[in-house]
Amino acid sequence: MATGQPSEISTLASDLAELRKSVGEPSYERLHHALKKAAVADAVSITTLRNAVHAGRLPKLQTVVQFVKACRCVSERDDLMIDPETFDVHVWRERWMAAAELTR
């Protein structure tokens, strides 16, 4: 196990939690329903969304991407004025890849 694993995972989880807070801290159920309404194929479950923040392990890349998309959907539905770059999936994918690389 790499030395950076716990801090990289906890940083990513903390940042996902902050992202959720920035859109009004919606329930994980609401995030899941936002994905369904946006017609996201194979939307991850409520539990998977929750575990991305609380499980203490690196979530799958698909989970991180969908978490970010769900937060963006909530932000748009609630007319929140948040910098669109906050929801840049490419940035979140790079962050996930960096964390995954350090946990090998």
Rank of each mutant, 00 (worst) to 15 (best):
M1T: 11
Q5V: 10
P6C: 04
E8L: 09
I9S: 01
T11M: 13
T11C: 00
L12P: 02
L12I: 07
A13N: 11
S14P: 07
L16C: 09
A17F: 14
A17C: 13
A17R: 15
L19C: 09
R20S: 15
K21V: 10
K21M: 13
G24E: 11
E25I: 11
S27H: 07
Y28M: 12
R30I: 14
H32K: 11
K36S: 14
K37E: 15
K37W: 06
A39I: 09
V40E: 05
A41P: 10
I46P: 01
I46Q: 08
I46F: 09
T48I: 08
L49D: 03
N51E: 02
A52P: 03
V53M: 09
V53Q: 00
A55F: 03
P59Y: 04
L61F: 15
Q62E: 12
Q62L: 13
T63F: 04
V64S: 02
V64H: 01
V65W: 04
Q66W: 02
Q66T: 09
F67M: 11
V68T: 13
A70L: 01
A70W: 02
A70Q: 02
D83F: 15
D83P: 12
E85D: 15
F87R: 08
F87H: 06
F87Q: 07
V89Q: 09
V89K: 14
E94W: 14
M97F: 04
A98M: 10
A99G: 08
A99M: 04
E101D: 10
L102A: 12
T103G: 02
